[in-house]
Design a protein around this nucleic acid. Sequence first.
DNA 1: ACCTGAACACCGTTCAAGT
DNA 2: ACCTGAACACCGTTCAAGT
Lengths: 188, 188
Amino acid sequence: MTQVRPMRADARRNYERLLKVAAEAFAEHGENASLDDIAKRAGVGSGTLYRHFPTRQALLQAAYVGRVEAFGARADELARELPPGEALMAWLYELCVGTIQVRGMKALLGSAVTDGSTAALTACGTTVRGAAGRLIEAARAEGFLRADLEPIELLRLAHGVATASELADGQGTQIRRYLALLMEGLRP
Amino acid sequence: MTQVRPMRADARRNYERLLKVAAEAFAEHGENASLDDIAKRAGVGSGTLYRHFPTRQALLQAAYVGRVEAFGARADELARELPPGEALMAWLYELCVGTIQVRGMKALLGSAVTDGSTAALTACGTTVRGAAGRLIEAARAEGFLRADLEPIELLRLAHGVATASELADGQGTQIRRYLALLMEGLRP
DNA sequence: ACCTGAACACCGTTCAAGT
DNA sequence: ACCTGAACACCGTTCAAGT
């Protein structure tokens, strides 16, 4: 493993300010928020932004890792509170809500379940696939889910449900309905 | 009704060249193809492009109306050739393939089934909703489809299936599978 | 009536100069 | 080692001048 030397104090400060501002900017303007604007608002030169985050995806990912990991933790929480079928359903619902309502999240979660994704993105992908895998296994054991469905496939279909619901009214009012229709087709 | 005066010869020539070039450009670069580039390739000033097509959506729509109408005609063709359930399935399949493979089409079909769409876009929406409506009614009469599903909702869900399949491998190899899973959940 | 293309504002990205 | 910001290439959109 390559040891990561601690950042110089000013570098670390800039890094964190960039993340904070980026999260705000993506939330406000979506995944295409101006990078130049983010740098300016963080009080750094644009070169500094590129030094820390070479691509837009890298910044987007860094800005939202926390939220993605929260989804992972939430899966286990729901697994403790609810019976398997309901836990899976509740988690997918929350995931879809986040996909639509947290602007920028859709792009991130989308590429997290895309076939040829970069290694960097796989961090989010691993988290979310792991969480889904645990819920799915339990739901399957109870006969709520057919056997021939990979976790990543269910995540893609849920992403599709979020997309469909977004087309409906931009909010998430149809998520429950569309999710129920989908799950109906995924029974054993 | 407002009578539309015929265009001046040079205007009509430019209009058609723009459409032709735009269809190529969108197919090649997707819905965000450079408008400036389209104008240049069509041999007109950028102002001329804006005169004919005030927004990107207007150009996208004009460039692909033909294809959308072909989907409408194709629905009736399939209805004649196949039993209702299969006709609906086959049509949705072709629609999903188009959504993924014809770059730029996804944006257009998406906004055609979006809740608060502009009047201009509703042209595509009307065509595609009408076609879906006819197929759905027949499939429902034969007991292939639950009663509480609007045509536009099925179109949104199909759009979701296309999205999910796009995440899988960028091609359409998973469309049939995901569509089958969806339809399973839409039975009466 | 219609077209042209310069002009403006904006954005992403790179890199030489600076500390 | 890290930061800055000017510089470059590109894009969307408008509009005065031209036919």
